[in-house]
């Protein structure tokens, strides 16, 4: 039988890959994709715990996380489109108008 540890390790690895993506990539859309990767790895942890402990709350929480992720992607991509209209770039090194 597969142990809980393996699911947690896989999820940790995917989270770290997402973190490295956020730190290294300069395209705002790819940064968004890396954030989706991190959200999904957290979801995997939730489902693994929920299934191993026989508790449905983890799966309900994943359902809510998915809804929030959908909302986040819609608003985030709208912001990226608005920025692209103004500055004609999605490179996050050049989007620094909030920098003091």
């Amino acid at each position: 039988m597969i142990q809980l540890d393996y699911f947690l390790l896989l999820s940790a690895f995917m989270f770290i890959v997402g973190t490295i993506g956020v730190l290294t990539r300069r395209n705002a859309i790819v940064v968004f994709m890396s954030i989706e990767l991190m959200l999904n790895s957290a979801n995997l942890t939730f489902v693994a715990y929920s299934s191993f402990f026989g508790d449905v709350v983890g799966q309900l929480f994943v359902f809510f996380v998915m809804a929030v992720a959908a909302a986040e992607v819609a608003v985030g991509l709208a912001i990226i489109i608005a920025i692209f209209r103004n500055k004609l770039t999605v490179n996050i090194d050049e989007i620094n108008i909030l920098k003091w």
Binding site: A67, A70, A71, A74, V75, L77, A78, I81, A82, N86
Partner: peptide
């Protein structure tokens, strides 16, 4: 939240900043 996000996405991507 989903309703607000839908409206927000339309408003943000429509207006010129």
């Amino acid at each position: 939240v989903l309703l607000v996000a839908t409206i927000g996405a339309i408003v943000i991507s429509k207006k010129k900043l």
